[in-house]
């Protein structure tokens, strides 16, 4: 008894530490479903977080629009010119595609692929600087499943135009889901360059940059190439836009060609996303 009294505090601390390590061990291998307690906690917190993040978004949008008030008009003019230019370019590309049977078929495939998209909103970001994970406001009740791919897209009224792939769902609660982004350190994504169809693998890093390597050392990939998901491995759906190559590194002693990629999505500003459920 005296032993217990003397070391009571330390015993409790050691006990808690052991329990936590056991929990880490149990949950480390990934689970199919969240426990009831976790689910409940998420259900309670997610509406509050949603409310709070919406306020934050409004406030920061308000200040941003004030800051850019002066430049709006000139920017509008510029954008109009740019749209005209892009339309012209697009027509030329379509012409080019039309001439190649292979590409035509690929284009048809892309046009006819209809994903079932669930609109969702960001409700919280993981605190700290280590990882890039967040929580969205749609969960199992809305049809979101573990492993679903999350993309950023714009709803133009005529259809949904995808802007880029954001990440994939890690775990789902009733009305919320955890998402890991593609720039997360432990997230790998297989890609293909749209121009040459060369494939490779990209992974994220702590600094939030995407980099990876090509399967083929002789692959002809240059700065400015657009990368899409290849669908290899089945983790990410095929033909989702990832981003643009900003640097190609080839070292003689290395057997691989490395690429650095600028993701299409600004991960600091994601707010509205879509979940692909199939």
């Amino acid at each position: 008894m005296s032993f217990w009294k003397k070391y009571k505090n330390r015993m409790i601390v050691a006990f808690v530490a052991i329990i936590l390590i056991v929990i880490i061990g149990i949950t480390a291998n990934g689970r199919e479903k969240l426990s009831k307690g976790e689910n409940l906690l998420g259900n309670i917190f997610s509406p509050v977080q949603k409310f709070s993040i919406n306020i934050g978004e409004r406030v920061s949008n308000f200040f941003e629009s004030i800051l850019h008030m002066g430049s709006l008009k000139s920017e509008n003019e510029e954008l109009k010119l740019k749209v005209a230019e892009l339309e012209e370019k697009n027509r030329r590309y379509e012409d080019l595609i039309g001439r190649s049977d292979y590409l035509l078929r690929e284009k048809e495939l892309i046009e006819n692929t209809h994903y079932n998209l669930i609109p969702a909103q960001l409700i919280g970001k993981e605190p700290g600087n280590w990882f890039n994970r967040f929580v969205i406001d749609k969960g199992a009740k809305d049809g979101v499943k573990k492993g679903d791919v999350v993309i950023q897209a714009v709803d133009t009224g005529e259809g949904i135009i995808q802007e880029g792939v954001v990440g994939r769902v890690l775990e789902t609660g009733d009305t919320w889901a955890k998402v890991v982004s593609i720039i997360d350190e432990n997230s790998d994504i297989s890609f293909k360059a749209i121009r040459t169809q060369d494939g490779g693998i990209l992974s994220g890093s702590v600094e939030g940059k995407l980099s990876g390597y090509l399967f083929d050392t002789g692959a002809d990939v240059i700065k400015g190439d657009k990368l899409f998901t290849s669908g290899l491995g089945g983790v990410y759906d095929a033909d989702l836009y990832i981003g643009e190559v900003i640097n190609v590194i080839k070292e003689d002693e290395d057997l691989m060609k490395k690429v650095e990629v600028e993701p299409a999505v600004d991960f600091k500003k994601i707010y509205k996303v879509f979940v692909i459920s199939d």
Binding site: V16, I23, I24, T27, E38, R133
Partner: peptide, 29 residues
């Protein structure tokens, strides 16, 4: 202090991280 650390850590773990307990462990200590 340690109780508060445990709660703060568990909240973060449960809401964001698939592995439960790492933050709780660190904040507890």
């Amino acid at each position: 202090g340690s109780l508060a650390g445990l709660v703060v850590g568990l909240l973060q773990d449960i809401m964001f991280i698939p592995v439960i307990g790492i933050n709780a462990f660190i904040y507890f200590f």
